[in-house]
Design a protein around this nucleic acid. Sequence first.
DNA 1: ATTAATGTAAAACGTTCGTTTTACTTTTCA
DNA 2: TGAAAAGTAAAACGAACGTTTTACATTAAT
Lengths: 174, 174
Amino acid sequence: MEIMTKLTTAAERLFDRHGYMATGMDRLTEAAGMSSRTLYKHAGSKAQLMARVLSERDRRFMARLDVQTVDGLFAALEDWVRVEGTRGCLFLRSRAETGGDTPEIAEAVAAHKTAFHHRIEQVVAADLGRDDPVLAEQVLVLLEGATHAAVYRGGDAVSAARAAAAILIERVQS
Amino acid sequence: MEIMTKLTTAAERLFDRHGYMATGMDRLTEAAGMSSRTLYKHAGSKAQLMARVLSERDRRFMARLDVQTVDGLFAALEDWVRVEGTRGCLFLRSRAETGGDTPEIAEAVAAHKTAFHHRIEQVVAADLGRDDPVLAEQVLVLLEGATHAAVYRGGDAVSAARAAAAILIERVQS
DNA sequence: ATTAATGTAAAACGTTCGTTTTACTTTTCA
DNA sequence: TGAAAAGTAAAACGAACGTTTTACATTAAT
């Protein structure tokens, strides 16, 4: 397995489960199975590593959101939380942990959230046959809410969000 | 001003703006305007201080949610984000930062989220004249979503959530 | 007036942080 | 075959961490 893949995978797991700040580099080198010399040669710094983790996660998450309907978005989120678990949004969390003061991280988060918003607008437009920025904002809120409510309410939160979105969609389609 | 009040106020501000882990005790003693000896005499430890911050915030936030209608919940959230800003939910963030491994913090978060959920169920029941756990879950998701989407979408997220909730309510009332 | 309590300022505690360096061993490939 | 590249293990870097302690000043009540 490639060194960079091993490293990014281990980093994502630890940062997600224990937090960015709370994860020390010693713990990371051990989990990734490499020396700190190699880690720094490839990753540059802890913040750059986190930025890499985030852009990799963005790629993986956005690939799942390649759907045609709003309901597909919630189905994708259900799959995501089933596979990846419910620990909230790693993007918002990492930005909050660093107070937005780490440029690499703040930029990766901003890029993801912009892409996320645009994708939702696209899917809403495809589902409705026309743009509806307000409905898109509501769908975004429901997805974000499901992600964070699932932390303490479990999968019910995602189901509830999905049902709510179906009602909002049906209402503007007829 | 009381020492404990000064301390909790300064701590909440710093933990919220820069993160729990990223805020050092030196920065805290300076912001609170007291020696570290006094701080530790009153607060016990950093984790206990955070737990105090959270239960104080719970008191303040839940007081705002003392409303009779679902729309009142969203109006209260609008007020909250106007006054306190949009940095996401400090409860979920502090739990995520510590990976749930700090008992005082994990307990304060669990207590708040349980109270939050129950309050929503109460308000939904009062508004509808009957219990509706599913609608309550949807309202919870919308509130949580508005809180977190507002971080990058601003006040529009809260307005969108409020409008969505109104639709869901109207639908089951008629 | 004196004692006990409570505060400050600041040094020090041992630990851990992110990162770099030293010394050495493997791998790669012209 | 042999030099360059890239890895490991482990020590060391200075800085910062949360917390405690030392030495002293101020307050409050007997």
